[in-house]
């Protein structure tokens, strides 16, 4: 009773034989082989980087109610901006809303991994710091998390790069990247209602 699998294989063999019977020029076969190798090279580099070097775009699927950010603990106004968590990691919580990024200005250290957590309080936004890979869409209902490192100190603009309304041009703020040794962790101001 080994008919079923061999039938399938025979069918594939037929299809392949039919394919081989059609005329494809030798030069064209070679060109296709070269094309496949080039594509394989590109795909290979990207896949190895993604799987072994952790080079990925943002992609942490995490939902949040954008309509009540002010009531959420994490994105309440007092909790925004740069913070150092108990493990020493730098977390930056930012809210995008027409037409700015809040807080309006932050200081971060260069050459240090930074984890940004972006949320929208209204419509679709995007944020990019030119000349860096700090780029993400900020979709209402989701937290956009991205970790990156800025190699060079300097003043960088934060620009909204998705149309969000007639004031879209005006949606931007600033970020100062400070030399690692000059940067000081901000003192966490206690959230309202918390014990001093």
């Amino acid at each position: 009773m080994q008919i079923e699998p061999s039938k399938g294989i025979n069918h594939l063999r037929d299809l392949y034989a039919q394919f081989n019977a059609i005329h494809i020029d030798q030069l064209e076969r070679r060109w296709i082989a070269i094309s496949l190798m080039v594509i394989g090279l590109f795909v290979g580099i990207i896949t190895i980087d993604a799987l072994f070097h952790g080079i990925n775009p943002p992609g942490k699927v995490e939902t949040i109610d954008s309509a009540s950010l002010h009531l959420s603990k994490e994105f309440a106004e007092d909790n925004l901006g740069v913070q150092v968590d108990e493990k020493g990691a730098i977390i930056i919580r930012m809210v995008a809303g027409r037409y700015s990024f809040f807080p309006k200005h932050i200081d971060v250290p260069a050459e240090t991994p930074l984890t940004f957590r972006w949320v929208s309080m209204d419509v679709l936004h995007g944020v990019h710091i030119p000349m860096t890979n700090m780029s993400t869409m900020i979709v209402p209902g989701y937290v956009a998390e991205i970790t990156t490192t800025f190699p060079k100190p300097g003043e960088y603009p934060l620009l909204c790069n998705e149309y969000c309304g007639l004031g879209h041009n005006h949606m931007w703020s600033n970020i100062s990247v400070i030399a690692k040794e000059d940067w000081k962790a901000p003192v966490k101001s206690p959230a309202k209602g918390e014990q001093q």
């Binding site: 594509i39 990207i46 896949t47 992609g59 869409m137």
Partner: peptide
């Protein structure tokens, strides 16, 4: 959707490979 938060990176990589194909 590479830069979007609502899809996971594995799906993005899969679609990315298809894009090269």
């Amino acid at each position: 959707l590479y830069m979007d938060p609502e899809q996971a990176k594995g799906w993005k990589l899969l679609h990315g490979i298809g894009t090269f194909v």
